[in-house]
């Protein structure tokens, strides 16, 4: 932890920006560059910056859930999105689509189990990176 007022003031803005950008990266991942992995990395970067500026204890308090639990929940979510396809007599991990709104006129929002899988990957990457970094931060 560095006791610097400049870094603390910059971190307050940058952590929020990084977390917002990580969600943006996660949600647009299906059609454009992005997705769960890079989104999770950017989100973790936000908290790493926070850990450097204000310390590991404050970061654990800000996370609320232990990062290893976040990673495990993510792994469960990713697995559940794969198992979900089995109920439709499809192969494991086949993407299931459903459409909100009128499909005939083209005025609809497509939602898929692929997105749920991506959210799982996001949580796994986010949780495991933060587990590593916070452990290192407390060690040295």
């Amino acid at each position: 932890m560095i006791d610097s007022i400049i870094l603390k003031a910059a971190t307050r803005l940058l952590t929020a920006l990084l977390l917002l950008f990580s969600v943006y990266m996660l949600l647009r991942g299906h059609n454009l560059p992005g997705g769960g992995f890079i989104g999770g990395l950017i989100g973790a970067t936000g908290f790493v910056l926070y850990a450097i500026a204000v310390g590991a204890d404050a970061t654990r308090a800000a996370l609320y859930f232990p990062p290893q639990n976040v990673a495990m929940v993510g792994l469960g979510t990713a697995l559940a999105s794969g198992v979900y396809a089995v109920f439709f007599n499809d192969a494991f991990f086949t993407g299931q689509w459903w459409f909100i709104g009128d499909r005939e006129s083209g005025d609809y929002i497509p939602i898929s189990s692929v997105l749920v899988f991506d959210i799982g990957v996001y949580l796994v990457v986010f949780g495991s990176i933060l587990t590593l970094v916070l452990a290192l931060e407390e060690e040295v």
């Binding site: 560095i2 940058l14 950008f21 454009l32 560059p33 950017i42 970067t45 910056l49 450097i52 040295v140």
Partner: peptide, 26 residues
């Protein structure tokens, strides 16, 4: 897409500089 690459690189580059500065300080 390259605009997003630039944004990510700028944000992560800041973190890298801060981490290295802390290493120097230590």
């Amino acid at each position: 897409a390259f605009i997003d690459v630039a944004i990510v690189l700028a944000l992560v580059g800041f973190l890298a500089t801060v981490a290295l500065a802390r290493f120097v300080e230590r």
